[in-house]
């Protein structure tokens, strides 16, 4: 019988080892799987490559993982946002590596990785610093650069509801990178507000089909990153 439900965030992340690549969902705090990230802080794995649109805020969630010295390399489109100070400090000190990727290229690299596409061509970044050194081709008179598909050992994602098969639905703009990261990771670990019985999610409304999800953890009342930042909280 298929049962993807795990008992706790700590159990679900227990095999994320040193040197792993980890995709982390969310756009700012929307969709950020904060309890799973905190479990990874507790676990203490080091030398991680993290693929995420931003670099967190304050000293909680992704920012806490970075502040804890666990991340060697970030693949990211926008590493400075309001209340984001941990990444800039470490970056200026030369203690963390950055691969800056245009946001649409980042999303498409993840989607392509999940779809078994090793590389593709895009017009984004042609003639700019971020297109330098990349293979170029001309199709129908327009220039394109080659970008590689991205895969990862693990994905940490937040969704709204899931069933034991791993079918997921999300909330509003908290969906963002979740569906494609589930596709692109060998092990997609998802925290949901509620685990429901099979059949409770209308098959017509499933956003991420269960085949892309390996582990599901119920976190009924997730912490809100901006509230923690406002309170000046620091994890752990």
């Amino acid at each position: 019988m298929i049962q993807k439900r795990w008992s706790s965030p700590a159990d679900a992340v227990a095999d994320i080892g040193d040197g792993a690549s980890v995709m982390i969902g969310g756009f700012g705090e929307a969709g950020s799987p904060i309890e799973l990230i905190h479990a990874l802080v507790d676990k203490g794995s080091r030398n991680l490559t993290v693929i995420s649109n931003n670099t967190g805020s304050g000293r909680v969630g992704l920012a806490a993982l970075i502040a804890n010295g666990q991340v060697a390399r970030m693949i990211c489109s926008y590493p400075r946002s309001t209340n984001s100070m941990v990444f800039p400090e470490l970056y200026r000190a030369g203690k963390i590596e950055l691969e800056l990727v245009p946001q649409g290229t980042l999303a498409e690299r993840i989607r392509a990785g999940g779809a078994g596409i090793p590389a593709f061509f895009t017009a984004t970044a042609v003639g700019t610093q971020l297109g330098e050194g990349k293979e170029r081709r001309t199709f129908d008179g327009r220039d394109y650069v080659m970008e590689r598909g991205l895969r990862a050992d693990f994905a940490l994602v937040r969704a709204d509801r899931g069933d034991r098969h791993g079918n997921l639905v999300y909330t509003k703009t908290a969906r963002n990178f979740g569906p494609i990261m589930c596709m692109a990771a060998k092990v997609a670990i998802v925290q949901v507000r509620q685990v429901v019985e099979s059949g409770c999610i209308d098959p017509e409304a499933v956003v991420t089909p269960g085949i892309f999800v390996q582990r599901l953890v119920e976190v009924p009342c997730p912490e809100q990153e901006s509230h923690l930042v406002k309170e000046g909280r620091c994890y752990p």
Partner: peptide
């Protein structure tokens, strides 16, 4: 030199 580079979706928007 000491700026934190951040691009977001700008390059995708102008290209597409």
């Amino acid at each position: 030199a000491d700026a934190i580079p951040a691009v977001g979706g700008a390059m995708d928007l102008v290209a597409g």
